[in-house]
Amino acid sequence: MTTRIAMWSGPRNISTAMMRSWENRSDCEVVDEPFYGFYLKQTQSPHPCFEDILAEQSTDYQEVVTNLTQTHCKTPLQYQKHMTHHMLDGVDLSWTKNLKHCFLIRDPAQVVNSYTNSMGQCRAQDIGIVRQAELYDEITQITGQSIPVIDSNDVLKNPKYILSEVCKALAIPFDMGMLAWPKGPRDSDGVWAKHWYHSVEKSTGFAPYGQRDFTLNEQQLNVVQEVQPYYEKMAKLRIMLPDAESN
């Protein structure tokens, strides 16, 4: 029987590196953003690779759910990389009951800066931070689980500690293979990899943590201010680093 793990993140986090980490386990297969096609069809949001994604992925919500919950998996673990903004308001989340869950968060200012650099502009609804907090509450209520939350900066500071704690919370063994992986693309990558995955394809592990200076304009600061309370709510729930490493 396969244990299916859903990781809920917003864009411009370390979500693809995290997917690489899990895929490098010998006992795990991964699924890359399975609701992207559904999201694009419903919103008509002008994303890179729009037509390719609609041609590649099912845009039928229930069909995707069936694939995620009932399709046979050859490995003991299946890791599902989900974007929170893909889960539109009002979608049926009852399918999440029999999965295990984790939430990956990131400082909103960093997200807004990175998203704007990639897309030219950034709105609150584009980065899924508000929706992430909503999904945490909804999925917790549906599943009754004590769902682990991790912050990308904490992962970069000490990936071994955070990932081992996540595995413990999910009641699965930690695998040292999660800390490093070979360079290059993967067959499991979504068709959008050609736009988004250039950096991760060059990576062999999580990048070292480092503060990067950047300046946000007024519109970007307004987005940060709008989503900050939702991030802070989630940050209070996160797995904490040992005190000496938290600063």
Rank of each mutant, 00 (worst) to 15 (best):
D137S: 15
G144K: 12
Q125I: 09
T143Y: 13
M119S: 00
Q121D: 13
G128E: 07
D151C: 09
S152H: 06
T116P: 04
Y115W: 13
L135P: 00
I150M: 14
Q125N: 12
Q141W: 03
Y136L: 11
V149G: 01
E138Y: 10
Y115N: 06
G144L: 11
C122L: 08
Q145L: 13
S114T: 11
Q132G: 05
E134T: 15
D126I: 10
I142F: 15
N117E: 12
Q141A: 09
I147R: 15
S114C: 09
Q132N: 08
D137C: 14
D151M: 06
V130G: 00
Y136F: 11
V149N: 01
P148N: 08
N117H: 08
R106N: 10
T116A: 04
I105V: 02
N153E: 14
G120S: 04
T140R: 14
R131Q: 10
Q121M: 10
A109V: 01
N153T: 05
V130T: 09
S114H: 07
N117V: 02
Y115S: 06
Q121I: 05
G128N: 04
Q141T: 13
T140H: 06
D126R: 06
I150N: 02
Q121T: 12
G144F: 10
Q110K: 15
I150G: 01
D126H: 12
A124Y: 08
V112N: 03
M119H: 01
I127Q: 03
R106E: 09
Q121S: 14
I147D: 05
M119I: 00
N113R: 04
Q141H: 08
I127M: 05
S146A: 14
S118I: 09
Q132W: 02
D137E: 14
G128P: 07
Q132P: 00
T140Y: 05
Y115K: 03
D107Q: 12
E134C: 04
D137I: 15
C122S: 08
I142V: 15
I142Q: 14
N117W: 00
Q121W: 13
R131V: 03
N153H: 08
R106G: 08
R131N: 05
P148L: 07
N117P: 00
A133V: 00
V112I: 13
Y115P: 03
Y136Q: 07
G144P: 09
G120R: 00
V111H: 02
D151I: 14
I150W: 05
R131W: 00
P148F: 10
I139C: 12
D151R: 10
G128V: 01
T116H: 02
V130Q: 07
A109P: 04
S152P: 04
I142L: 15
I129N: 02
T116Y: 00
N113S: 11
N153R: 07
Y136H: 10
Y115H: 12
V112C: 04
A133Q: 09
A133Y: 01
Q110V: 08
S114W: 07
G144V: 05
Q132D: 02
I142G: 13
